[in-house]
Amino acid sequence: MNEFLNLFILFITDAWFAWIPAVGFAMVFNVPRKMLIFCAAGGALTHSFRFLLLHFGIPIEWATFIASANMGFLGLYWSRKHLIPRPVFTVASVIPMIPGSYAFTAMIGLVEINTSGYSLELMQIVMENGLRTLFILTALSFGLAIPSILIYRGRPIV
């Protein structure tokens, strides 16, 4: 019971810290003011859901894929309800899951291989972070596209 409570508190904290970046980046993308609340809800839900999946030992790529596929279906529902294109909600909501730190580490590794010469450790950093970025990002976009790939197949959603 105590363990469950701890997990629940972590889950809520995760959701709380995830809505902030979702709304922040939605504002950079100039999402209309009325829709920001949906981005906040989507961001909090997806990131905390992924947190739960990671907690139960699912690899990060698959966890990201499942969480973003959920967001894709949620976005589908909202977009049909409000007659607004799906990327308006979905992209801002998955922004907290973007592997930005891995991407920059890989790039910085490349720059350092250039300045300080080739070494196995640097190359390992570049490859591991680069591949992780690639796979997480593909899982993310693929998950978001699931509704239009599997259900709509080329027909317009709104």
Partner: peptide
Amino acid sequence: LLVPGFPLINAVSDMLK
């Protein structure tokens, strides 16, 4: 804040479609 998230997601979904 400098991660080009939107172009990256658009890039993959464009290629998928």
